[in-house]
Nucleic acid binder design. Structure first.
Lengths: 113, 113
DNA sequence: GTCATGCTTAGCCATAATGCTAACTATACG
DNA sequence: CGTATAGTTAGCATTATGGCTAAGCATGAC
């Protein structure tokens, strides 16, 4: 559970930055080189490199180097742990809503007495 | 879009901490007091307070004070922007997959010639 | 070989995040 | 009133984050 937790933390942290989300959106369209990813951000290369390594450590992208060009590509299944967490949260929440409904029903019955 | 972006950043950042996720899971079961939320974390009250205010600023919880007791409760719809973002990403990704399929089809046709 | 291109590394700076203690406020209890 | 309880505020230390410049190192083009 601890490792799963770490994965989630890395994932959420990677997604918490707008620049990184923009990069992901760009990569969702097609793989791209580092320089091409940097251009629209208005940031310097080393800064973008850092963002890319955060994304890579979170498992959201993979990169391969061909000659002097590094190509970055999305890893779409990387978002799965997040979906799972969301669904779990929803499940617990729904259960709570049911209990709350039951509570309201009971209370209303009591009031009628 | 900028504001929407900020919301998402706050949301993802709030969720990037295991302690805060644990607090949310706890709150999904039932609302709770600050002290009760602090107990299982092993953290001091001021520290937990800070986590709570991060969660509150992200819109994930609401708190109300009754006498000297502050009660925290989940705001389940707060996760909606995240779901939306997820779906958007998936949509773009799927479109890309389609294009890739089309590309593969074309390539195979070419090969047959 | 020389030079431009594309990335990488090292190191600096400012700010934000996460934890703490200590001291304070405000409510409840007896 | 006096004391315990529940939160709050202020301030500090450490580490992480996000940006930069400057310099280095491959690789491709000429």
């Amino acid at each position: 559970m601890a490792k799963h937790d770490r994965d989630l933390s890395l994932l959420f942290h990677a997604l918490s930055d707008p620049t990184r989300r923009a990069i992901l959106t760009r990569l969702a369209e097609r793989p791209a080189r580092v320089t091409d990813l940097a251009a629209p951000t208005g940031l310097r290369l080393p800064t973008v490199m850092r963002h890319l390594s955060v994304l890579e450590e979170a498992g959201l992208i993979t990169t391969t180097k061909d000659g002097r060009i590094r190509t970055c590509a999305l890893v779409p299944e990387a978002l799965d742990p997040m979906r799972t967490w969301l669904e779990q949260q929803r499940a617990i929440w729904d259960a709570r809503l049911d209990r709350f409904d039951a509570f309201v029903m009971r209370t209303m019955k009591e009031d009628k007495k």
